[in-house]
């Protein structure tokens, strides 16, 4: 007994196969749009930057005159900013990840902390800026200092590092844990001597990626009121400072056409730094990741 019309099936087949092929190319095209945009963006920016990107640009302070404008203050300022952000973010995030993965009891408080962290990851950066403005700049009277901005950015990248560190810690197999505990080692000895070292490449990779996000982040700095026309570099974390993305934004907003080229030069410097950091992260991930 044949219920199915085999001829119909055969007749429809070539259409189905053609459709499959067409869609495959369409999907491929979608994938390639990202690449096309990336290349366009880089070529467009480079062509604007060429002629303005030179040693003077890297060694002079910002200026209202196009021919004098430089990135020096912004580069040094961003480094200062990271000096605050990175240690604070690492300390808090890794401790949080260790607690959640190794110590936290399974209860409502822990669940709440976890939900809280994933929600924190979804808060727009500009809102973190408002937090920094009201808390650090105003309430704690830090002003628009390196410290205020650094702490704001540290809070912003905290959830990112927590999640990636949790994943690295979780990927250490329980057999290794049991081996250490089984020898009579204490929990902290196991955590600090076995688990943390095994998880460290993954943790560092996550940190680098988060930090490269912090370096390029502009919105919170605008909200905090980071200045764009300083002629000094900070001497302490309580001083005012400039930052690369902030400086780029200020240049983009300048009415004179030439400042677009200066902005493009700044972007190229920023992108090169980010690219180096990303490569470092990939290198660490591939080189040091422990396989079990």
């Amino acid at each position: 007994m044949q219920l199915i019309d085999k001829n119909l099936i055969a007749k429809k087949r070539s259409g189905r196969l053609t459709f499959n092929q067409i869609m495959k190319w369409l999907f491929f095209l979608c994938t390639m749009i990202g690449l096309v945009v990336l290349i366009t963006l880089i070529v467009d920016t480079l062509s604007d930057a060429i002629g303005y990107l030179n040693l003077d640009f890297l060694t002079s302070f910002s200026s209202s005159r196009v021919e004098d404008a430089g990135f020096y203050g912004a580069i040094i300022g961003s480094i200062w900013l990271m000096v605050v952000t990175v240690p604070v973010a690492i300390f808090v995030s890794v401790a949080t990840a260790l607690y959640l993965e190794e110590y936290a009891p399974k209860n409502r408080v822990t669940d709440f902390i976890k939900v809280n962290i994933s929600n924190l990851a979804g808060v727009p950066s500009v809102v973190f800026g408002l937090l920094g403005l009201a808390m650090f700049v105003r309430a704690m009277a830090m002003g628009n200092s390196v410290l205020a901005a650094g702490l704001t950015l540290a809070l912003m990248i905290l959830p990112v590092i927590v999640v990636s560190s949790q994943e690295s810690i979780r990927s250490v197999p329980s057999t290794v844990r049991e081996a250490s505990i089984g020898m009579g080692a204490t929990k902290w000895q196991t955590v600090s001597r076995i688990i943390l070292p095994a998880a460290i490449p993954g943790i560092i990779t996550g940190i680098i990626l988060a930090v490269s996000r912090a370096i390029g982040e502009t919105a919170p700095l605008v909200v905090i009121g980071v200045p764009t026309t300083l002629l000094v570099t900070p001497d302490s974390v309580l001083d005012s400072f400039q930052a690369m993305p902030m400086q780029i934004y200020a240049w983009i907003k300048m009415p004179q056409e030439e400042f677009q080229y200066i902005a493009a030069s700044g972007i190229i410097v920023l992108l090169v730094i980010l690219l180096l950091m990303n490569s470092l992260a990939i290198f660490i991930r591939n080189k040091f990741s422990t396989r079990y």
Binding site: I4, K12, R13
Partner: peptide, 14 residues
């Protein structure tokens, strides 16, 4: 269905 048979009656029987 993926081979293009859409009639409800046929499908029910199949």
């Amino acid at each position: 269905r993926v081979h293009g048979i859409r009639k409800k009656k046929v499908l029910d029987e199949v």
